[in-house]
Structure formats: C-alpha cells, structure tokens
C-alpha cells in the first residue's frame, strides 16, 4: 500500500530561523527517493517534516503543503500521531528500546498503540516483520534477548523491522547506514531494494554511491551560506542526476568539486 507524496511550497522553521525554503517535490510510490547534499542543508529537517516529527522539537514549525494521496498532512484537523502511523521512520543511529526484548521491540508499535492482538497474530507479525528486515534467521532463536545485545547492523535492521511492523505506507530513512560498517550497509541496501515493492521509501544519505545504488530518483539540496535557508536545487531520475545534471552546483557536488 505505498503512497505518493506531493510537497508544495514547503518552508520549515526552527523558531524564527528558516531552515528550508520553498521545496516542491513529488515522491513516487513504490520507489526509492534519495536526498543528498552537504551537511546542514536541511535534508534531514525536510525528511522529518514528512511525518511531522519536525514539530517534536520545541519552537519548530512548518508552512506549506505535504499531500499524501490527496490528504494534506498539515491540515488543521490532522493528528500528527496518526500521520506517523502511516509514515514510518528509521533514524541515523539504531535506537532499539533498551528495556525490551527483540520480540517486544518489533511488537512495540502495535503494543504501545494499545492495539490488543492475539498472541498467535502478534507472533506472525513479528516473524513477518523480522523476515521483511532480513533479520529473522539471525535472531529467531533468541527473540527473548534484549535488543541491545545485537550488533549495530542488526540493531538497525531491528529498527527497520520495528518500523515496518506497524505497516506504514511510506518509510523515511535518515542516514540509516552512517553508523554501520560496509557489510551491514550492504545488508541494509539490499533490504531497501526489497522493501520498495511494498513501500514508498525516502532516504537521506551522505554517501553518493549509496544514493546511486539504491535510489530511483534523487533530490539535491544545497545551502548558499550559513544562516541562509536550504533549498531543493534539482530533482530528477537518479541516473540523470549522476550522469548529466542540469544544474552546475549538482555536478560540482557529485564530482566532489564542491566548495
């Protein structure tokens, strides 16, 4: 049940500071959209505005429209909590709940949302989510162990399993591999490739090879200088961005001639 997201004229603020300015973007369903750009250009901020996680920070606000299949996520009567059930998120650093077992971590989304579920159904959900995150074979014999007993790469896949267990339509990933070694990164990238048949995926990454490998479309963000808001410079098919971008700044950034 992947969904399409259309962003129009989105400005994002921290207090009175405008961090991102007038972003217009369409995110296609069942595809991977990568966001690249230098540090501090607002990629992560933009990503967090797609599931209303941005406003968790005190003073943060958003102006503009984010429309998911015809529904404005920032409509006046929209509950941000409900939005996050449809748009899941994986963070930069793996953050399994330390007091919960592997099983409970995966079941957390359902349990914390007070959804009572029969044990068998929950078992099934946990297994399918862990299989979906390519982790089942590694942890099936120790589901009762704490989530923090896993390695970093496994923890990140556990977090992905936790995110997909609530069956979101869109999955946001904020540099999901930046804390991982190449082998774990490869595992996650393979996983992203598989997941895109079911979800709309948006991934922020600093690794351009990664963007080129996993994504179908790529958006390049840039910032003119400190104190200025970040902007979406260009968005196109990944192949085109990496071979023949239409804006000079994109080419400079991709070829490493930046700054």
């Amino acid at each position: 049940m992947a969904k399409r997201i259309d962003v129009s004229d989105l400005d994002i603020f921290y207090g009175s500071f405008k961090a991102v300015e007038s972003v217009n973007m369409s995110i296609e369903p069942q595809s991977v959209t990568a966001l690249i750009g230098p540090s501090g250009c607002g990629k992560s901020t933009f990503l967090r505005s797609l599931n209303r996680m941005h406003e968790v920070i005190p003073g943060a606000s958003v102006a503009g429209k984010v429309v998911m299949d015809g529904q404005d996520l920032y409509g006046s009567d929209v509950d941000p909590v409900a939005v996050r059930r449809h748009v899941g998120m994986v963070f930069q650093r793996p953050n399994p709940f330390p007091t919960m077992s592997i099983y409970d971590n995966v079941a957390a989304g359902v349990r914390l949302n007070s959804g009572r579920m029969r044990k068998a159904t929950l078992d099934e959900l946990v297994e399918s989510s862990l299989r979906g995150a390519n982790l089942w074979e590694e942890v099936k014999d120790r589901l009762g162990r704490p989530g923090s007993s896993l390695s970093g790469g496994q923890q990140q896949r556990l977090c992905i399993a936790r995110a997909i267990a609530i069956k979101p339509e869109v999955l946001l990933m904020d540099e999901p591999c930046s804390a991982l070694d190449p082998i774990s990164t490869l595992a996650i990238e393979d996983l992203i490739y598989q997941l895109k048949s079911d979800f709309t995926i948006v991934i922020v990454t600093h690794n351009m090879q990664q963007a080129a490998r996993v994504s179908d479309r790529t958006g390049f963000f840039n910032i003119e200088g400190t104190g200025k808001p970040g902007r979406l410079i260009e968005m196109d098919a990944t192949q085109r961005i990496f071979s023949n971008p239409s804006v000079k700044a994109t080419e400079d950034y991709i070829t490493g001639r930046f700054g």
């Binding site: 599931n51 968790v56 909590v81 996050r84 989304g109 914390l112 977090c159 936790r162 609530i166």
Partner: peptide, 19 residues
Amino acid sequence: ELREASYALGVSKSRTVVK
C-alpha cells in the same frame, strides 16, 4: 532518541511517557 523512536511509531506523547 527513544522518545523519537516511539513518536515515529505513531505513539502518542502520553503513552510514550508511560510506556
């Protein structure tokens, strides 16, 4: 991070605090 992880699962603030 744990609060954010919980919010991102679509858990309300009160439930995040308690659970």
